[in-house]
């Protein structure tokens, strides 16, 4: 076990702890805050794996954007945000999830085993290298995604417009 492995295990433990908190919290806001822990731990894992640009994007978009959106939505829906009505019976869910974890783990262990790679290329994840790949090899996907994002935002605006019936009442 090298220092990188120890760091990865520690940050992975933080991530999984945050994830468990997210799926077991008794209030929506607490689940959102646990999600911040999980996603920040995941960004730490990315940093250890030398994907620094992706790690900062993860912090910016997920922790700064997605979680804030989710918390705002939980405020705007004023739905029951805590208590026992939040969960279904847990037994079947635990069984299926443990089965998924066991199956995926077996598959990955069989595929990769205890193989070792050395991280001698230190700047494989810098913004320069990632941007080079993004705008040289994957620029078509990048443009398509900008269209997708535009369509999604227009769709979100249309969906959240007030119903027409309300206008007649006024």
């Amino acid at each position: 076990m090298s220092g990188t492995d120890v760091l990865l295990v520690a940050l992975g433990a933080i991530t999984l702890g945050g994830a468990l908190g997210t799926v077991s919290a008794r209030a929506v806001v607490r689940a959102g805050l646990w999600l911040v822990v999980a996603l920040a731990g995941l960004a730490g894992c990315f940093l250890v794996l030398r994907a620094e640009f992706v790690a900062w994007v993860q912090i910016l978009i997920y922790v700064g954007g997605v979680v804030v959106l989710l918390l705002f939505a939980s405020m705007m829906t004023r739905a029951p945000v805590s208590g026992g009505e939040l969960d279904r019976p847990r037994g079947p869910g635990v069984l299926v999830a443990l089965g998924a974890i066991a199956g995926l783990s077996t598959l990955l262990v069989q595929a990769f085993g205890w193989s070792k790679v050395n991280q001698d290329d230190k700047d494989v994840g810098t913004a320069e290298r990632v941007g080079d790949a993004l705008f040289r090899d994957w620029v078509l996907g990048f443009e398509l995604l900008s269209l997708l994002l535009l369509a999604a935002l227009v769709g979100a605006i249309v969906l959240s417009r007030a119903p027409a019936a309300k206008k007649d009442d006024a």
Binding site: G12, L16, A19, V23, L49, E85, A100, W114, V117
Partner: peptide
């Protein structure tokens, strides 16, 4: 660096998320 550590963390994270999708209302 052993890649299997990252893969196993990812598998566990996926399973936990799956549990959340199944159990939450």
């Amino acid at each position: 660096m052993h890649p299997i550590i990252g893969y196993l963390i990812a598998a566990a994270l996926f399973g936990i998320g799956f549990y959340g999708v199944l159990v939450r209302r």
